[in-house]
Structure formats: C-alpha cells, structure tokens
Write a protein that binds this DNA or RNA. Structure first.
Lengths: 207, 207
DNA sequence: GTCTATATCTCGATAGAC
DNA sequence: GTCTATCGAGATATAGAC
C-alpha cells in the first residue's frame, strides 16, 4: 500500500493499520484495539512487535517521513528551470498523497499536537545530511537569486505549496458536501487539481 | 478570547477550554479532565452545563462555525471587483484565525474524522439560508462569468484559499523548526503572509 | 509467533453532600 | 451551582499456554 517495507508481513500489516488509525484519530485518540482489528491480528501482537503505543507511533512517523523526503529529493534534483521542477514536485507530491492519503493526515495530526516527534526527526535528518525540507528551502532561494521567480520568502512558498497540495486531501469531507459532483471521480479531480495548482503558482510567482 | 459569548461566565470558560483541547487532541483524543483543568473547574461541571462530551463538542463546533461564517459573509458582501473582495476576505480570515488559532485546528480535526458533525451543520445552514461557504462558491462563479478572473472551478479556488490561509497556522510547529527567525514575530509573519497570498492569488488568477 | 486471559489504570458519567 | 467520591466501561500492557 505505502510501498514501505519493514521486512516482515505481520509487521507490515500492523504498520499500515497503525498509519491509518493514527492519521484519523491522532496519537491520543487512536485505540490499540482498532489498530489490531484493522491489521487483522490481536492486541498482544502490537506490543510484541513495537513494544508500546508511543514506539509504534514513532516508527510510523519516521518511516513515512523518510519515504516521502526521498521521493521529493528525486523530483527536486532533476535539471531544468525552477517552475518546471516545481511543477514536477507538485505532481509527484500529489500522486504520493493520492496513493496514500493517510500520510497527509498523519503529518497534520502531528502538527496539531505541536509536532514534538516530527521536530526530532527533522533535526536529525538535517544534521545527517539526509534529504529533507531544508534542501527545498535552499533551492527556492537559488531560484529567487537567479531571477527565475519574483522575490519570495522560502518559508512562504513552502507553506503555500504545502497548503495547496495537502489541503486537497484534508478538506475532502467538507468539500464533498459543498460540491459532490466535482469530487466524485477522485482521479479526475486530482488531475484538475494539479493543473489548477501549477497554473496559479506559475503565474503567481512569475518575475 | 473568541468573541463568542454563551451568556454565562462559567459556561464561557468551559467553551474556550473545550475549543482549545478539542482542537489539539481531536474529539476522541480530548480528555474531559484536561478540559476541566484548563477551564479551572472540575469534571462534574462539564456535565452539568453540557451534559455529555458529544454535546459539548457539537456546541463548540456549531458556535464557531456561525461566528466565522457570519464574519466572512460581511467581508464578501462589500461592493467592488472580485480580486479586491478576495483580498479583503483573506485579510479578515487571517485576522480571525490569528486571534483564535484553535478554530483552524478544530476544523481540520473534524475533517480528519470524516466531518460528520460539520456536514450536518453545513447542510442546515444552506437549507435555512444562513451564511455559509456555498455563497462564496456562487460568488466565484459570478466572477468567472463576468471575466474578472480566469475560468476557475469554484471548488478549486475554495481549496486553494483555504489551504494558503489555514495552513499558515496548522503548519507552524514544523515551520518553526525550518525557519525559526521568520516565524519568531507572529504579527510580522502574518503581515508578510497576507501580502504573499494576495499577490500569488491576484496574478495567479488574472484572466 | 500467536493466542486468551487478566492485571492495572484511566476514561466518561453520575450520585449526593453542601 | 459547585464540589468529592465513586461506578462501570474501556484503555494499555503483560503473563503464560500453545
């Protein structure tokens, strides 16, 4: 499902189930029983493989972060003008979230809680030189310096891109009540969504 | 704090506390004990005033929705070209969330949970003719028809505006670790944020 | 490795004194 | 209206059979 493999089949099914439940209910609202049921095993197995709820949560967040940052690094490293790279990253990012909507929810849940676990992970990645959002920030700075886009604070563009993409998934329950027809075909909606985002960003950032 | 008044001082303090705790932990993760502690009273009072956790949650979501939709309706109803109106709405919306960041978190939590309560509230408002997001959708359609902005699916612009604004608050824990300096002064950051959003939207939607 | 059974704690909700 | 004390349900985590 996620493309993340922990090496053991039972462990993987627990991982997928935990990701889903944590992303909907949050770290505190999630119930070990619901994770076990979703994974199709019993509660005792959760503790056998991941020891505690806290450690299970940390494992999920860590693996997901690594998976996403690595994929984004690939898209970012391709040559070409910044707006093309940005378009490709938006595409990759939307596709990854479409294949696994739980990840966007999980990241949001972590932020609503003050992001204590995510903070530790991000600092670690930056220190070790692993792919992470700080690299994207530098790339934006370079694009501004080269005159490829209008002067833009990197953090503003980060929030804007994150908002336009992630919100596509987060807000779906509400949006489906506002315009059910537009959201009925998920694949078609996301195709139009991607076009909209790239258009707005390209013209909105043109120098 | 929110400007929402339930008429009774104790009731108000419970309301504020519940909004804060629900917004951080979600409906399932929130603990009645924590709400009571935050409000400075004991658990029994929560049940005395709001009967149950479910009813407390519904009350909070309902009052917050009404407060925000009414304010947005005011900003939307002012005369002038659409891009000006949009700029004003973004300003009002950012200011409201800045004064009460818990609201954005609460709305997100509700969506992560499938938005069952919000759905009921939205349908009720639409039926009764009360201010709500469906009115903004119609206003966007009119702007497209009048050629004020390039052809744009209303739902796409809704998600984009929501994403650019709400994400400013939601993502702060992560963003603070990425660029602490930029986020240190909250008021200054939001001023720059507003400018960025209006610029990107104005040029990004120009017909 | 996988299960059942259970220990221990914490939750939402209520009873009843004041 | 506001409190303390407490109930029963449900939570995490563990023990121990297989």
């Amino acid at each position: 499902m996620t493309g993340i493999d922990l090496g053991n089949e039972t462990e993987n099914s627990i991982f997928e189930a935990a990701l889903d439940v944590f992303s909907r209910k949050g770290k505190h609202g999630a119930r070990m029983q619901e994770i076990a049921d979703t994974a199709g095993i019993n509660k005792a197995m959760l503790h056998y493989y991941f020891r505690s709820k806290d450690l299970l949560y940390e494992s999920v967040l860590g693996h997901v972060a690594h998976h996403f940052f690595s994929a984004l690094e690939d898209a970012m490293s391709r040559p070409g003008p910044f707006t093309d790279v940005l378009g490709q990253m938006v595409g990759v990012y939307l596709d990854m979230h479409a294949a696994n909507p739980a990840v966007a929810r999980l990241w949001i849940q972590e932020n609503l809680n003050g992001a204590p676990v995510a903070e530790r992970i991000l600092k670690q990645r930056k220190q070790s030189g692993a792919p992470g959002p700080h690299r994207l920030m530098r790339r934006i700075e370079q694009a501004v310096d080269a005159g490829e886009i209008k002067p833009t604070e990197p953090i503003q563009l980060m929030i804007t891109v994150l908002g336009m993409t992630v919100m596509s998934f987060i807000s779906q329950p509400t949006m489906k009540t506002l315009d059910p027809a537009a959201m009925a075909d998920q694949a078609a909606f996301l195709k139009r969504r991607k076009k909209h985002i790239v258009e707005v960003l390209t013209h909105g950032l043109a120098s």
